[in-house]
Design a protein around this nucleic acid. Structure first.
Lengths: 231, 231
DNA sequence: CGCGAGCTTGACGTTGTTCAACTAGAGTGG
DNA sequence: CCACTCTAGTTGAACAACGTCAAGCTCGCG
């Protein structure tokens, strides 16, 4: 990781989080004093599960994967985050640990904001803390969907879910080139890599998607949604 | 459900949530005006997934199960809640819907607090909103453990996890009589009822637990923890 | 006494993982 | 420029894990 130039200011930051919309100029200036930009190469780890939570991160460029590591070093990818996105974690206001790991999927950069500074602003701006509560609850909702997908759906449904997730929530296009490896994709759906590949092939053969290497194209989104529901 | 007598006051409520510890007397009095006690019989539903979130509930007696319903009417039990516990939901400050269902496992009672009143107190008491953020994050942490348990562990590990959960987090005893059905237990670990029963029998045969009907006794807690880890 | 709901057991089938082998492409050094 | 290696992707076959189905059981209750 490398510390980048401090060339933008929080007040007129183009990647300002919607959460920070209602902050005063003073509050933004205060955050600005307590942040620094860092860039990461593809593959580098920004937060490590079990480590100490000292900063939260606002994604300014690139793509990150958020994942849980279990005791056997198997990963479960929770989400993919792009700008403007926030990387924090449930350690905030609990025991100040990281409960997941985060790594860069491509060359990326973030603003690291001191967690104490964030807390201070949170304590003095009521609107922010209310909005933050809404943000946390939104995360909860997404997690419930994920829980149902991973525990109550078969392979086909789970693969369909990840493809729809990438197209609609990450790349915002039915035609995308991903930097996620096959293992990452499998970890998103809690499948073995081989199983994921087999389902991909089935989907290709039946004409609902096309792909070559890491270039995917969703042909029949409705078919995928149907597969997601029934299985 | 039946509305109960308003015989206790929030100010000196014996089941006051730790979250409400730092509220002023005025704030507690305000909540007191905007709440009512309701009792439920075993099996009755208090919140229904998809319904409108109008109240949050503070559990004053009994036991509740919180569960997700999928499109095929299969349930996933997220947690069991006892007093003093809070039943709210991620619809708060998002879209005011219930994202899970809650039903009583035995004759129980709750205080229903108007969600607008809760929001008002939250907006005027900074300490409460910060603590609430911590509370939500704590929920998140528990959810991650659950996610790993359900997706990365085999049947033995998942059954061990639910038994440990009941003993250590619900009944606070290694010897407990549960009102959860076998189906509820299976839904806690995302297994078929028959599979859960088979593993229970294995555990009984190998001497790590005893049970007769719904009366369970954990004989070898360490063995269960080991099973939870390796599988 | 009979009925029904929840529990239990066994046999069987399906789903998804594991293992092993093979392939393709990207670096690396002689 | 050509072996060589290393990694990621792919495929097939064997296997294990788990769910489904069907039958019988128990116990409380009318």
């Amino acid at each position: 990781m490398a510390q980048g130039p401090k060339n933008i200011n929080c007040v007129n930051c183009p990647f300002k989080l919607t959460l920070f919309q209602h902050l005063t100029k003073d509050e933004l200036a205060y955050l600005d004093e307590n942040r620094y930009e860092v860039s990461f190469n593809a593959g580098e780890t920004i937060f490590k599960q079990g480590g100490v939570l000292t900063h939260m991160a606002a994604v300014t460029s690139g793509l990150f994967k958020i994942y849980l590591e279990d005791s056997n070093k198997n990963n479960l990818v929770l989400a993919i985050t792009k700008p403007p996105g926030i990387l924090g974690g449930p350690g905030f206001m609990t025991d100040s640990k990281h409960y997941f790991s985060v790594s860069a999927l491509e060359n990326s950069s973030v603003c690291l904001i001191d967690i104490k500074a964030f807390e201070k602003v949170l304590r003095q701006n009521q609107e922010l803390s209310i909005n933050f509560i809404g943000y946390l609850n939104q995360k909860h909702i997404v997690m419930y969907e994920k829980l149902i997908s991973l525990t109550h759906k078969n392979m086909h449904g789970r693969v369909a879910d990840t493809l729809l997730y990438l197209a609609n929530s990450v790349y915002n296009s039915s035609d995308f080139n991903t930097t996620l490896s096959r293992q990452d994709l499998a970890d998103l759906s809690s499948l073995a890599k081989e199983s994921y590949i087999r389902i991909l092939k089935e989907f290709k053969d039946s004409g609902v998607i096309q792909f070559e290497g890491n270039n995917f194209k969703i042909i029949d989104q409705k078919a995928l949604q149907k597969i997601s529901q029934i299985s």
